[in-house]
Amino acid sequence: MLITGASSGIGAATARVGAQHGASLVLMARRVRRLEDLAAELREKGADVACAGGDVTSSADVERAVRLAVDRYGRLDAAFNNAGTTIEPALLHETDDADYDTVLDVNLRGVWLCMKHEITAMLANGVGGAVVNNSSIAGVRATSAGAPYVAAKHAVLGLTKAAAAQYADRGVRVNALATGLTRSEMSEGIFARDPAAEDRMRRRNPQGRVADPEEVARVAVWLCSEQASFVTGATMAVDGGAGAW
Rank of each mutant, 00 (worst) to 15 (best):
R200G: 03
L104S: 02
F230N: 02
A164N: 08
S225I: 06
D212T: 13
V221D: 08
G233N: 03
L177A: 01
G139N: 10
V127Q: 15
V156N: 02
V132T: 12
V132C: 05
A228E: 08
V174K: 00
G208Q: 06
D99R: 12
T120A: 07
L177V: 07
V210H: 15
D194T: 04
W112C: 01
R218D: 05
G129N: 04
A192L: 08
R203L: 13
T235F: 00
V111Q: 01
R109W: 04
P206M: 03
M115T: 15
S225C: 05
R170K: 10
K116R: 15
R209F: 01
A176C: 06
A163F: 02
P213S: 02
R109H: 09
C114F: 01
S136H: 13
A147V: 13
A176H: 02
V174G: 03
R203A: 15
Q166D: 14
R183E: 14
R141L: 12
M201Y: 11
D96S: 06
A142R: 14
E118F: 05
R141K: 14
I119L: 08
V127T: 15
S135K: 01
S144H: 14
K116Y: 04
M201E: 02
T232R: 11
A162S: 12
V106Q: 09
D194A: 08
A163R: 04
N107R: 13
N205E: 10
P148I: 04
V150H: 02
D99M: 11
T143H: 12
A234Y: 02
V210E: 15
G128E: 14
E198S: 00
P148L: 13
V140I: 15
E185A: 15
A228P: 04
R193M: 08
P148A: 10
G129T: 00
A217L: 13
A234R: 09
V221R: 04
H154Q: 09
V140Q: 14
D97K: 11
M201F: 14
C114A: 08
V172S: 13
T182L: 01
V127M: 11
L159M: 09
E214A: 12
V210A: 01
P148N: 13
L123S: 12
T235E: 07
V150N: 15
T232C: 06
A124I: 07
A220T: 09
D99A: 15
Q207I: 15
A211Q: 10
H154M: 04
D105I: 07
A98P: 02
A168Q: 02
N205D: 09
P148E: 12
R109T: 14
S136L: 10
V221N: 01
A192I: 00
A192M: 03
K153T: 07
L223F: 02
G126D: 13
N133D: 05
T232K: 10
A178M: 03
